[in-house]
């Protein structure tokens, strides 16, 4: 097996295996997770779990402090109080949990911090010249430091895809190491932008590289490039996480982002996580969904399971 060798910051070299992936079979395997039938209770648990795994996201040029505050409010209490009172009469009602994190641009971090104060919800900031990553490395580090100083508890960085395609793997690796260093206590999610890496071989290589460089999570996409997260790409990354765990004993998290809009899709992803990595990964500490529209659908499906009927769309806030 061929491999890529990179220098470690403290000296020494490590080799990152070029682990080949067969596209046809990988796609076939990934699609097999979409045909599972799940016990009602497990489905309910999965829907609740998916809410708690959600990184509720707004990444728009037109984001304002007001918009971020609204999103934070929704993240804390995804269901309006008056509605909660009504649905609490439903059979087998459980309180709707808050999301795992609010994901915003760096400039919005202070506003999110203010809105989420004391809630325990994480503040995830995208960084390193998101979404392109086309910026000088020192400035990327400065950006990360600022985000952390402002109160971001999670950093979602992008890798330098240009350098990756040039074969300058050392640069890609060094950047991740440096960002991890700048993160301090904050968790680091490394966005591979699989839609720009194109091949599954590249996705596998980049996943391994990110994990070796210190990623706490590996993440599929920025949401700005199509395709964003797909089942097969996520499968490749989950298998990389599994192999990395077998080799090092370290549990790395996974975050598919972009394109997951329905509760059904979320359950398919959880089925896949369960079968590939096992139940340890069925936790917000090791698995997240980067999404916005998904949240409302999860809630609607929960209400449907409990009451037997669908609520109309406008009953939930559309933030």
């Amino acid at each position: 097996m061929t491999s890529v060798t990179v220098k470690m910051p403290g000296g020494g070299r490590i080799s990152i295996p070029h682990f080949p992936i067969d596209m046809v079979n990988a796609n076939e395997r990934a699609s097999s997770f979409t045909t599972r039938s799940i016990k009602k209770q497990s489905k309910m648990d999965a829907l609740y779990l998916a809410i708690e795994m959600t990184d509720l996201t707004t990444l728009e040029g037109m984001d304002t402090p007001g918009k971020v505050k609204q999103l934070c409010a929704k993240g804390i209490h995804p269901v309006p109080q008056h509605l909660l009172k009504e649905v609490s009469k439903n059979y087998d009602f459980r309180e709707i949990p808050s999301v795992a994190a609010i994901c915003v641009y760096p400039s919005m971090v202070p506003h999110a911090v203010e809105a989420l104060a004391g809630t325990g919800i994480n503040i995830a900031s995208v960084a390193t010249a998101f979404p392109s990553g086309q910026l000088d490395m020192r400035m990327k580090i400065k950006e990360v430091e600022k985000c952390v100083k402002d109160g971001a508890t999670e950093i979602d960085m992008v890798i330098d895809r240009g350098a990756f395609h040039q074969g300058r793997y050392q640069k890609v690796f060094d950047e991740i190491v440096a960002v991890k260093d700048a993160c301090g206590d904050a968790h680091l999610k490394v966005i591979l932008e699989t839609g720009e890496l194109k091949t599954y071989d590249n996705v596998r290589l980049a996943s391994w590289m990110a994990m070796e460089a210190g990623a706490d999570f590996i993440k599929t996409s920025t949401g700005k490039v199509s395709p964003a997260a797909t089942m097969p790409v996520t499968l490749i990354m989950l298998q990389a996480i599994q192999d990395y765990y077998e080799e090092t004993g370290k549990k790395i998290g996974m975050k598919p982002a972009g394109g997951i809009r329905t509760a059904k899709q979320a359950v398919h992803y959880l089925c896949m996580v369960n079968e590939v990595l096992g139940t340890d990964w069925l936790s917000p500490d090791l698995f997240r969904f980067g999404a916005s529209a998904l949240l409302n659908d999860l809630i609607k499906q929960i209400f449907k399971q409990q009451s037997g009927q669908y609520y109309y769309d406008d009953i939930l806030s559309q933030d």
């Binding site: 648990d45 999965a46 609740y48 779990l49 708690e52 409010a73 804390i76 209490h77 459980r94 309180e95 709707i96 949990p97 808050s98 004391g118 809630t119 325990g120 919800i121 069925l282």
Partner: peptide
């Protein structure tokens, strides 16, 4: 406000 963490899972 505080985070609601309802999961039994």
């Amino acid at each position: 406000k505080k985070k609601v963490s309802a999961h039994k899972i």
